[in-house]
Each structure stands twice: as structure tokens, then as C-alpha cells.
């Protein structure tokens, strides 16, 4: 669900969008698992996001057309779930766990160090488009707290001193 491609900003505010044929095929395959096509909606949005890094308006319509759903039904789903991005994000998404076990083991210091290092706070993307910083609920890694996730991989326990080495690998 994370961005692995540069964010496709030219899609902002545009309804023009065509599903990649591979993505369309993947969505149609997903549909087979369920009694109703609507159930493939979340996975469809995740498939789009894997390719483009986020889900533009045009993609909401394209997914709707494919699954026989209106814009509101698809966008209602897209905006409900926190890991579907309706705005462009950076090439890498850092999710910082802000739940209680991480709170008790010092996530606030870790987050502050990240903010200083990246120069952006929650919800923002670095000027070079490299990282987007977001909070996330308990990552289920509380015995490795404080924990964070980068592009779908969980790390922990992470100290502020670890950050330089950890982030280095992400271009």
C-alpha cells in the first residue's frame, strides 16, 4: 500500500485515468473471492495505490466502473480507511506508532527526532518527495516498542540514534 514509485502529481484534480491492464486483471481476479463485486473495492484501491503511490479521483471512477459502483460508494470507502491515500505521498511512507506501549517506551522522542531530521511533521512530505510522515495505531510490535513501519516493513525498538542508518537505505 506504500508508494514505491515517484508520486504521480499530474493526476491531481484530473478525472483522466486509465487502469493499467495488469491492475485491471488483478482486480477482476480478486472479485472471484466474493459473492459480490463490491467486496473487491478495498483491494482494488490498494492495487491502484501500489502502482501510483496514491489514489486520484480518476482512479475512484475507474474502479467504480469496473465493479459497478458509484463514485460516492468507492470514495466513501477510500476516505474511511487510513492506509488509502487520497493525496500524493512521498516515495517512502514512514508510519510512526503512537499507541500506548510505544508511548510508554518513548515514541515521542523518536517522533521529534524524525521531525527534526526530515523537516516535516505528520501529514507532510519532504520537499524532495522522499518521505511522507504519518502516525499509525499500534503496529502489533509492542514487545519491540517504540516501533515504526517504512514501506510495509516493521522496525523496532528504534532509538533516535538509529534513524540516520535506518533511513539511509531509502532513496
Amino acid at each position: 500500500m506504500m508508494a514505491t514509485t515517484p508520486h504521480t502529481t499530474e493526476l491531481i484534480g484530473s478525472d483522466r485515468f486509465e487502469l493499467h491492464p495488469d491492475d485491471e486483471a488483478a482486480i477482476l481476479r480478486e472479485k472471484e473471492h466474493y459473492e459480490q463485486p463490491q467486496a473487491a473495492c478495498i483491494e482494488a484501491l490498494k492495487i491502484v495505490q501500489r502502482r501510483h503511490g496514491w489514489v486520484p479521483d480518476g482512479a475512484i471512477m475507474a474502479v467504480g466502473r469496473l465493479l459497478g459502483l458509484g463514485f460516492a460508494a468507492v470514495d466513501g470507502v477510500a476516505t474511511f480507511y487510513s492506509l488509502i491515500f487520497r493525496q500524493p505521498v512521498g516515495r517512502h511512507v514512514i508510519l510512526v506508532c503512537d499507541s500506548s506501549s510505544c508511548f510508554l517506551t518513548g515514541y515521542e522522542t523518536l517522533k521529534q527526532a524524525l521531525v527534526e531530521k526530515l523537516g516535516v511533521d505528520y501529514g507532510a512530505t519532504t520537499a524532495d518527495g522522499r518521505f511522507t510522515l504519518l502516525p499509525v495505531c499500534c503496529l502489533g510490535a509492542c514487545d519491540g516498542a517504540p516501533a515504526l513501519m517504512i514501506d510495509g516493513e516493521t522496525f523496532g525498538p528504534v532509538t533516535p540514534e538509529d534513524l540516520s542508518d535506518l533511513l539511509e537505505g531509502y532513496e
Partner: peptide, 17 residues
């Protein structure tokens, strides 16, 4: 979530145990 490989083998990677 498409996993990037940048964190692979990183000692900070969390493993359930």
C-alpha cells in the same frame, strides 16, 4: 503494501517471537 527491500537484513527489523 508492496514491501521495499531497503530494510531487509536490517538488524532493527522487528521479528515476532
Amino acid at each position: 503494501m508492496s514491501g521495499s527491500t531497503s530494510g531487509q537484513g536490517n538488524p532493527l527489523r522487528y521479528h515476532s517471537r
